[in-house]
């Protein structure tokens, strides 16, 4: 069970792409990472949370989100995203 649950509307998403070269646990890590910075609207004030993903995780997530977006049941592409309608 999580210690903490945060719920809210996504206002903005930023990202950082990088490589962990080393850490105090291991001198030679050399692992790529993606950090997503999510600005979440909560009742009182917006907060910013970061999540660190491994490359594989990021690629899977990206694929799933695109699938969801492309789903016939989801968004009316023509009305909301006229520029993406032909993608």
């Amino acid at each position: 069970m999580s210690d903490n649950i945060i719920t809210g509307k996504l206002i903005n998403m930023g990202w950082t792409l990088g490589m962990t070269t080393s850490s105090n646990h291991c001198r030679s890590v050399n692992k790529p990472f993606v950090i997503l910075t999510l600005t979440i609207d909560q009742d009182d004030y917006p907060i910013r949370k970061t999540v660190e993903l491994e490359l594989e995780q990021f690629l899977q997530l990206s694929k799933q989100l695109k699938n969801a977006h492309n789903s016939e049941f989801l968004y009316d592409k023509i009305k909301i995203f006229p520029l993406l309608a032909n993608k």
């Binding site: 999540v51 909301i80 995203f81």
Partner: peptide, 14 residues
């Protein structure tokens, strides 16, 4: 541990 549940509407999805 933490759980984040973000609601993504059309505009945010874009």
């Amino acid at each position: 541990k933490e759980t984040l549940r973000v609601e993504i509407d059309g505009k945010a999805m874009h």
